Amino acid sequence: MSDIKFWRYSLPPIDSIEGWGIFLLDSTGMFAAVTDYGNYAFKWTHHGCKDFREFFIDIKHGSDNEYYIKKLFQGQEKEFDGENTIKSIKEHILYYRRDGSYSKEFAREEWDLIKEYEHNFISVIDFTRWHDETKIDEAHEFACYDYPSDIKAFGQKLLPRLADVLREELQKEAA
């Protein structure tokens, strides 16, 4: 047990508006974070790096860092994404109207139906109501889900800052 190394990092908020976080890492691949964007933990058993901290140094600013988010969000449910669901349905109607699979009348009916729901399509309940009325086959496949905004902010704002700290620390240790 004494061979395991532990690292703790504390990132203060930026200008009192952009998230704070406390991060714990260990040499076995354990990662834990307590932040104002939520609390997350995961153990990477096969990270492929000599030093586990190296695993995070390539995280980019402005990126969604989806790989890390996917691992840290395991076991939790994504949120219904009404905006992308509407977009998906509209693209489907347009595509099948253009290729002749949908008649002008059918496409108009479906377009009008989605327009009825468009401004209130904020929950899966709204999707279910639309689903019950549409005549589009396999309509359940249009439902889109996404990560909640807090885990996205964690990946976009805090993980890149942690990567900067780790990169700097590793560079100092190498010198």
Rank of each mutant, 00 (worst) to 15 (best):
76 Q>P: 11
76 Q>M: 10
99 D>T: 07
112 D>V: 09
108 R>N: 09
151 I>R: 08
28 T>D: 14
158 L>P: 03
163 A>R: 02
167 R>S: 05
118 E>F: 09
79 E>H: 13
22 I>R: 13
63 S>V: 06
136 I>W: 05
94 L>K: 13
56 F>K: 07
58 D>E: 10
151 I>K: 12
126 D>G: 13
117 Y>N: 14
2 S>C: 00
20 W>I: 15
54 E>F: 01
97 R>F: 15
23 F>G: 04
122 I>S: 10
10 S>P: 06
116 E>T: 15
61 H>F: 08
65 N>D: 07
124 V>N: 13
143 A>P: 13
129 R>M: 13
155 G>L: 06
128 T>G: 08
45 T>G: 00
43 K>F: 06
160 P>Q: 11
172 K>C: 13
110 E>G: 05
171 Q>S: 14
175 A>S: 15
75 G>N: 04
35 T>C: 02
111 W>P: 00
126 D>H: 11
47 H>Q: 13
124 V>C: 10
99 D>S: 08
45 T>L: 02
122 I>N: 14
169 E>F: 09
7 W>F: 10
27 S>I: 04
73 F>W: 06
112 D>R: 15
163 A>P: 01
27 S>H: 00
139 A>D: 01
23 F>A: 06
23 F>T: 01
63 S>Q: 03
130 W>M: 09
8 R>D: 04
43 K>S: 14
167 R>K: 00
31 F>H: 13
63 S>Y: 01
141 E>D: 15
12 P>E: 09
41 A>H: 07
57 I>C: 02
38 G>E: 15
134 T>H: 10
66 E>G: 06
175 A>I: 14
88 S>H: 00
172 K>P: 07
42 F>I: 05
87 K>Q: 08
121 F>E: 08
175 A>G: 15
149 S>C: 02
121 F>Q: 08
140 H>D: 06
49 C>W: 08
146 D>M: 01
83 E>F: 05
36 D>E: 07
149 S>I: 14
135 K>E: 04
128 T>D: 12
130 W>D: 13
25 L>N: 09
9 Y>D: 01
37 Y>A: 09
68 Y>E: 06
75 G>T: 04
